[in-house]
Simulated scan of single mutants.
Amino acid sequence: MFQPSQSTGGPPPQGRAWIGGSSRTIRRVAASLLIGVTSIAGVAGCASAGPYNPSDLAPRQLSQVQQICRSVMGIPAGIGLSSDCVANLSSSALALSQGRAQGAALDEARHACLGKGLTAGDPKLAVCELSTVADRGAPAPDAAAARFDTAGLATPAGSYFNASFGEVRRREQMACARLGYDPINGGFAKCVASLDSALFASQHVMQ
């Protein structure tokens, strides 16, 4: 007959030793998980620490673009429409810098081609200019040198949401002018149309 005190032939239960070992294992796993979560949180914190800057503008330029959206367009910070305004005007500012760099490169190419004896109005001059620019490679825009006009913008404009259609268009034109676009050039109309489309799309997102 089996007696409670008799051995079953298997290893004796370890009791506290097994529980203690398990606790150490759990503590090691928990510590590893905590370190991992902390690291991920730290990376996420670093990634979200900086302001929204889709075109990588210099800090001062980004601040000026934000001010234009707030004080010219009348769009308060902290809403999606503000982010879309900043993104669009930042892109237009970068395009203006690129256009100016391209224009400077063409001016240099024209000077070089005129030095070869070509004259204004000669189709060969235009070909020479483009070939010279291509040979030298695409010019790098000096975005850091771009200067925006934010003088007198200490007071925010009236709310964008209460402005009439005509007033909104006037503000869009002024925003592009503040970036440095000249109203007599085609790029100005493109800047205004792009901003208008971006703000319209931001308010009419497909559900």
Rank of each mutant, 00 (worst) to 15 (best):
F2P: 15
Q3M: 08
Q3V: 09
P4Y: 05
S5V: 08
T8V: 11
T8E: 12
T8N: 15
P11T: 11
P13I: 14
Q14H: 10
Q14K: 15
G15K: 06
R16W: 12
I19K: 15
I19W: 11
G20T: 14
G21W: 09
S22K: 11
R24Q: 09
T25K: 15
T25H: 10
A30W: 02
V37E: 04
V37N: 01
S39A: 13
S39K: 00
I40N: 05
A44E: 09
G45F: 12
C46T: 11
A49K: 06
G50Q: 11
P54V: 04
A58Y: 06
A58D: 13
P59N: 08
Q64D: 08
Q66W: 07
Q66V: 10
Q66F: 07
R70P: 09
I79V: 12
S82N: 12
S83K: 13
V86N: 04
A87N: 03
N88A: 13
L89M: 08
S90Q: 00
S92M: 09
A93P: 03
L96A: 06
Q98I: 03
G103R: 15
A104D: 09
A105R: 04
D107K: 09
E108Y: 08
R110K: 11
H111G: 12
G117E: 01
L118H: 05
A120S: 14
A120I: 14
G121N: 08
G121I: 10
K124E: 13
V127L: 15
E129K: 05
L130D: 14
S131T: 07
A134K: 12
A134P: 05
P141M: 01
A146Q: 12
D149P: 06
T150Q: 03
A151F: 10
G152W: 04
L153I: 02
A157F: 07
F161T: 13
A163N: 05
S164Q: 10
G166C: 01
R169S: 14
R170W: 04
R171S: 11
L179G: 01
D182V: 01
I184P: 03
I184T: 13
N185E: 14
N185I: 10
G186D: 13
C191Y: 07
V192P: 02
S194H: 00
L195E: 05
D196Q: 14
A201P: 04
H204V: 12
